[in-house]
Design a protein around this nucleic acid. Structure first.
Length: 723
RNA sequence: GGGCGAUUAGCUCAGCUGGCAGAGCAUCUCGUUUACACCGAGGGGGUCGGGGGUUCGAAUCCCUCAUCGCCCACCA
């Protein structure tokens, strides 16, 4: 007889392993059944399961199990992501703990070290996913740095380059001065910071005693000022346009220009222009042909050497500037001599203090106001981002976005809930060039090689690049490979087809692309969903998925985002150990109502655990009452009203659960099952039929036993997607 | 500055195309003769954020205000 209390630990792992061994999770391309595909968002290879994972993978597993039971050839494609920056930070920190740096190991040594870390921790997340019960097709597991997937990355890069959709450009980028890498706009997180607004008097040239006051939150950037802008219709300054100011501390003469960027309502109405260190100023500078003066080195310290540019220059070979015309030949000019000696080598924040002090001493600070501003930070490293002028690889996202926008407009891909399409459109219609290069070592190295004169050869292999170079130069030359790697999202954007064997035309690719549903959180609509749509449409000619189901974030019971710093992290594995994975899965499903964040209280998990025990005891009762499945049993042949009733109610419940799951109403499916199992089957049917099981009427008894067993079997099936 | 979401029981939330206000947890009363105390039977508790409108009828649709949260944005 079954134990009175259900002990999940004694069942779950054993059952899961039996299922996996039996091949229950494997897709079967030769089955002839209709395919149903979900691409698993690849978790970071060295990561471990957190509550967000638990939610997203539970929901995906519910859909996969549901459709598999309905007879579809279900493919849940699993895998992991190399997670460039995230992993590189982890390993760099490990090295730091040993008193070493990345540079100590060198590129090859560092990459070796990361692979070792991947080998050590790489199995963790997939083991944990199994513990959650995720019925993925593990035999098809992929990793974004696998040979096949890497070949796909090179193919895509080369193809887009040849189509002119990937190009090299020198422009302002978001620079992390500690990690020494560029990041994309999406990786920048604005944080509200208390600072000051300094009003500085710039002396007018040739008009002693007259000043123009500019306000800035970053006084240190004045070393790179090359203009002062006022609004064209601002009467206060009409006579000054075309005149010059003498930049304090530096002595450089810079022009006063008229540009609509200057807002007469703001501050004094005049704004200093630092084209090399501010995104707006860059545009103003471009419009007025102002000089770009770079004052920072790669550490965001004031330049201390004329060789700073050169140090960086090995990535920016002479002649590789794509848009040289736009820059009016102003780029790359040596500017070191224009930086006053006293500031050279100072950290940007120390420079700020010194500059403010020096200006004050000169009586040029008009006033200082407290000011709250949004400061850009790197979302992963937490460092303050510096807009910095470098050469990088960009992808013309605006062009690739067009078909993706159209696909969602026309409904070829639909978002659920629908409102997320607005978010998607808003970003896609204003999309900026996507900076795809990173100054990291862990990732897909960019397949570009440079000749001695800086000419670039983009090719899928070094041999191919060498052939192209030989043809170009007329003889064999030594090439050096671009040292940068690609943004992690560049490769994960290919996931829906690279995992299926693309660029080879495999049977899997033909069968499982496009996928049916993508399940993910709203926080990566831009990072990932948009990129998969763009790249899938471009290279496969079709959308990667028909439906995008967007779920909410899991928060703690007070609604706070879970984070290490808050110390409010609920560990899903801890809950699984204490309550069983079914209790956690059921809870997450029941709370997954569309459009609202999930506040997870442990009491809900406890309640789900009780539900599992309730079901267990119903089965225990059935067993001890001699209820066994009767082959060929047809509930429609029942004669007793109570049996006819429960059979009909069971069918109704099955229908309602089906409708709920088809509409992604996981919460409703869970509630229907909870109430049917507990409120209808246990509280009423099992109680009603107790007297029947005691009677002498063998026919009535047998019919009731058979019906009980049948209903129980139906319920276990209906619950299987969730539990 | 723009966009989105939320506001329903003490807490966390459902409530779909308007039709008798619901669940889980908590709380109170009763119940330990054999499925389950991780249980059973029953109870208390809500002016559905405020105001206006449409309607025979509004938690639900419309307008407006308030508060909270999130996303995006170049306001020096």
């Amino acid at each position: 007889m079954l134990d009175k209390t259900y002990r999940p630990a004694s069942v779950e792992t054993r059952q899961y392993e039996a299922w996996e061994r039996a091949g229950c999770f494997a897709a079967d391309p030769s089955s002839g059944r209709r395919p149903y595909t979900i691409m698993m968002p690849p978790p970071n290879v060295t990561g471990s399961l957190h509550m967000g994972h638990a939610l997203t993978f539970t929901l995906q597993d519910i859909l996969i199990r549901f459709e598999r039971m309905r007879g579809r050839d279900a493919l849940w494609q699993p895998g992991t992501d190399h997670a460039g920056i995230a992993t590189e930070i982890v390993v760099t920190n490990q090295l730091a703990a040993e008193g070493k740096t990345r540079a100590d190991l060198g590129r090859d040594g560092f990459i070796e070290r990361v692979w070792a870390w991947k080998e050590e921790s790489g199995g963790t997340i997939t083991r944990q996913l199994r513990r959650l019960g995720a019925s993925a097709d593990w035999g098809r597991e992929r990793f974004t740095l696998d040979a096949g997937l890497s070949a796909a990355v090179r193919r895509v890069f080369v193809a887009l380059y040849r189509e002119g959709l990937i190009y090299r450009d020198k422009r302002l980028v978001n620079w992390d001065p500690v990690m020494h890498t560029v990041i994309s706009d999406l990786e920048v997180e604005s944080r509200e910071t208390k600072g000051s607004l300094w009003h500085i008097r710039y002396p007018l040239e040739g008009q002693p005693g007259r000043f123009i006051t500019v306000a800035t939150t970053r006084p240190e950037t004045m070393l790179g000022d090359t203009g002062v802008a006022v609004h064209p219709e601002d009467a206060r300054y009409a006579d000054l346009v075309g005149k010059s100011v003498r930049l304090p501390l530096v002595g450089r003469l810079i022009p006063i220009i008229a540009d609509e960027y200057a807002d007469p309502e703001m501050g004094s109405g005049a704004v200093k222009i630092t084209p090399a260190h501010d995104f707006n100023d860059f545009e103003v500078g471009r419009r007025h042909n102002l000089r770009l003066i770079n004052i920072f080195d790669r550490d965001a310290k004031i330049k201390s050497s004329v060789f700073d540019d050169f140090l960086w220059g090995h990535r920016a070979p002479v002649g590789s500037v794509t848009h040289a015309d736009d820059d009016g030949g102003l780029l790359g000019k040596a500017t070191f001599e224009e930086i006053p000696e006293g500031y050279r080598g100072l950290d940007r924040f120390d420079a700020r203090e010194k500059i403010v002090a020096d200006l004050e001493a000169l009586g040029l600070i008009d006033k200082i106001e407290p000011h709250t501003l949004m400061v850009p930070h790197h979302d992963r490293s937490g460092e303050v981002i510096e807009p910095w002028l470098t050469d990088q690889w960009f992808c013309n996202a605006a062009e690739l976005a067009k078909p993706a926008i159209e696909a969602v407009e026309s409904g070829r891909t639909q978002f659920v809930p629908r409102q997320w399409e607005n978010t998607f459109f808003e970003w896609m219609r204003n999309i900026q060039p996507w900076c795809i290069s990173r100054q990291l070592w862990w990732g897909h190295q960019i397949p570009a090689w440079y000749g001695p004169d800086g000419a670039v050869f983009v090719a899928e292999s070094e041999a191919e690049a060498e052939r192209e170079a030989a043809a170009h130069y007329g003889s064999e030359v030594a090439l050096s490979r671009d040292e940068d790697v690609l943004d992690t999202w560049f490769s994960s954007g290919l996931w829906p087809f690279s995992t299926l064997g693309w660029p080879e035309q495999t049977p899997e690719l033909a069968r499982y692309y496009p996928g049916d549903v993508l399940v993910t959180g709203f926080d990566i609509i831009f990072f990932w969903v948009a990129r998969m749509l763009m790249q899938g449409l471009h290279f496969m000619g079709d959308v990667p998925f028909r439906t995008v189901y967007i779920h909410a974030l899991v928060r703690d019971e007070r609604g706070q985002k879970m984070s290490k710093s808050r110390g409010n992290i609920i560990d899903p594995l801890d809950l699984i150990d204490r309550y069983g994975c079914d209790a956690l899965r059921f809870t997450l499903a029941a709370l997954a109502s569309p459009g609202r964040d999930i506040k997870l209280a442990e009491s809900r998990v406890e309640s789900s655990r009780n539900f599992a025990t309730k079901l267990w005891n119903a089965a225990r009762y059935a067993e001890m009452s001699g209820c066994a499945l009767v082959p060929g049993f047809d509930p429609r042949q029942c004669r007793l009203t109570v049996n006819r009733w429960i059979a009909g109610a069971t069918r109704d419940c099955a229908g309602a659960v089906t409708i709920a799951l088809e509409g992604f109403r996981f919460d409703e499916a869970a509630h229907l099952l909870y109430h049917f199992v507990w409120g209808t089957f246990c509280d009423w049917y099992l109680e009603f039929t107790k007297p029947i099981l005691q009677t002498e009427d063998a026919g009535a008894r047998a019919e009731t036993q058979a019906t009980t067993a049948w209903v129980l079997a139906q319920l276990v099936h209906l619950l299987h997607p969730v539990m």
